[in-house]
Amino acid sequence: MAKRVGKTATEKELKELEIFLDRFPEYKKMQKVTDALTTDLKQQDPAVKQKDFSEGIEELWYKIKNSGEGQVVFEKRNVRSLIYWRVAAAILLMLTISGIFFYTNRQLADNQLTKVIIRHVYVPYGKTAGIILPDGTKVKLNSGSTFSYPETFSKTTREVDLEGEGFFEVTKNAKKPFLVHTNTLTVKVLGTVFNVKAYRNDKNIETTLLTGRVQVELKDKPEKSIILLPNEKLIVDNNISGILNASAANAREAKIEYQVTALPRVSAKGIKETAWLYNRIVFTNQSFEEVAKQIERKYNVQITFEEQSLKNEQISGVLENESLEQALEIIKMTTPFKFRIDGRAIYLAHIGNAIN
């Protein structure tokens, strides 16, 4: 009966129970009471289940004790069988009560799990933010990032969601993997230090590993796992549609949708992937358009290019504590252009061309 209540009984066990109830119909009342009790528990509000459960058990005992009418009389040769079945029935009764108790508490636990509080953090342009997660993991978020995490992690995993850029120092726990979900990929770790850059409007998604080991799964190719070792960076096309699987003969025509590159052996402050942690922007042969996105986040502005060709200019440099105007003047040293600042709006154009 307990297995039947908990929906774990096999066909054979259900058949045995049916034969038993046919042979000892006085126990059919017990089954009906337990069925009524569990059905009632399913329909009730979780907040009152525990109280009603206790009252229901008392009522169950009362009805079982008073269910003697109509009992079957057995011949002497069936006395041993009767004793056997009564012992079995007593055991089943205890199992039934245990089963209902387990079922009720499991339902209450499930309802509590569905009420897990999810915290959402948004970091505006021009700001960064630091968070310590429930397990002690430290996260620093770059400007323009949205981050979600549960107030309490589950018993088996630690899962968070990121849109934007975050630097993670994950507390080690071999029994509970730490997963960072982005729009394109999922990074899985046990305990390590890494950076994830996953802005929705950026050309690429980047995962940079400093220490430890991470496993990256692409959303549309979950069977394909990419392992990163220290000082390696994974670059994934933000509009990924599949994994490169071309031969050398047609590799030029194939679109490279992800690649792993080695980082230079310099300090974390000197690596462009983590320079933002020190309020710096480091760019080496990057398009002006990509650098402009970083400037927008750092200075909380909106940049408009008057010409497409200016977006494609390749520029290099380092920005740190300069004002917005000083930063633009530094870039002008290698890429001639002019700009106009109108509040938080910045307009860029080639020298000699008009700016709206």
Rank of each mutant, 00 (worst) to 15 (best):
A249T: 13
A246H: 15
T261F: 06
P230M: 01
K255A: 07
G242Q: 03
E253C: 11
A251K: 08
L234K: 00
N245Y: 03
D237M: 02
A251V: 05
L263H: 04
S241G: 12
A248Q: 12
N231R: 04
K224M: 13
R252Y: 14
N239W: 08
I227P: 07
I243Y: 08
L228Y: 04
N250E: 15
L228K: 01
I227C: 10
S247F: 08
I256M: 08
Y258N: 02
A251H: 08
S225V: 14
I256P: 12
K221W: 08
L234D: 02
E232D: 04
L228V: 01
L228M: 06
Q259V: 06
A262C: 11
R252D: 14
L229F: 11
E232R: 07
A249E: 14
L244V: 15
D237Y: 00
P230V: 00
K255S: 10
I240C: 01
E257A: 04
A262W: 09
G242E: 01
P264A: 15
A248V: 12
P222H: 06
A254H: 05
K221A: 14
K255F: 07
A254M: 04
E257S: 01
S247V: 08
I226D: 05
I227K: 11
K255H: 14
A254C: 09
A254I: 01
Y258P: 00
L234W: 02
K233I: 09
L263E: 04
L244P: 15
S247I: 11
E223A: 15
L234C: 06
E223Q: 12
I227D: 12
Q259H: 06
N239L: 10
I240V: 08
D237F: 01
N245P: 10
P222L: 09
V236T: 01
N231E: 06
Y258A: 00
I243W: 06
L263M: 09
I226F: 03
